[in-house]
């Protein structure tokens, strides 16, 4: 794959407190895009967009708060394009009714944690994402959330059964599954081409 010249001066921040952050950095690397681990507030000044990875939303909430990252990140997300997967998607939505998790209210839904059940209900499936890819996307769902109370201003890009699983609202992109676990960087590419580059 040839690297697009527009990618050269981009740096995508990946919140690297816990979870699948290394996999997201690897997905960006496949596109020839640099990434930077975000573990303290100063890191937020050095990036063009942010990824909130999969992991445990309770653990991430605690680490974000303990490290003084929650407030600066909340502020940065007013303008910074962001992509959240699974736990990251839970955190980007409206505040859920669970005091163990603190949400950023950047996209209009409430996530229901572990909505498919425990690990034994985890699965993979082929998703059709017509506005994004000319091929099916192999999607891995791990103790995945469902998006509830989705407002009309939120665009659904893919569904599994009756449930929207890939959503966009302005500069915010979220997946209830894990594109970072798949070889195919197609969704990461969409995030960069359609959101990050167009917001500059």
């Amino acid at each position: 794959m040839t690297i697009r010249p527009e990618y050269e001066d981009l740096t995508i921040g990946v919140v690297a407190l816990q979870g699948s952050f290394a996999k997201h950095a690897f997905s960006m690397g496949k596109l020839g895009i640099k990434s930077r681990a975000v573990r303290e507030p100063a890191d937020l000044k050095l990036i063009d967009a942010l990824i909130l990875p999969g992991g445990e939303s309770t653990t991430m909430t605690l680490l974000l708060e303990n490290e003084g990252l929650w407030e600066p990140m909340n502020e940065a997300l007013e303008t910074l394009p962001v992509f959240g997967t699974c736990a990251g998607a839970i955190l980007l939505g409206q505040q859920i009714d669970d005091e163990r998790v603190r949400c950023f209210n950047k996209i209009d839904y409430k996530a229901e944690r572990n909505a498919y059940g425990r690990q034994i209900e985890s699965f993979s499936t082929a998703l059709v994402i017509p506005s994004m890819l000319d091929h099916d996307f192999h999607a891995i769902f791990i103790r995945a959330p469902k998006f509830r109370d989705i407002k009309p201003n939120v665009m659904s890009l893919a569904v599994f059964g009756a449930d929207p699983v890939l959503l966009r609202q302005g500069n915010v992109l979220v997946a209830s599954f894990h594109p970072e676990l798949t070889e195919d960087p197609g969704i990461h590419k969409y995030f960069v081409d359609e959101i990050v580059l167009k917001s500059r």
Partner: peptide
């Protein structure tokens, strides 16, 4: 799907 959960536990 099995290793996927382990990926989420990393760090």
């Amino acid at each position: 799907v099995k290793t996927g959960l382990a990926e989420m536990l990393k760090g």
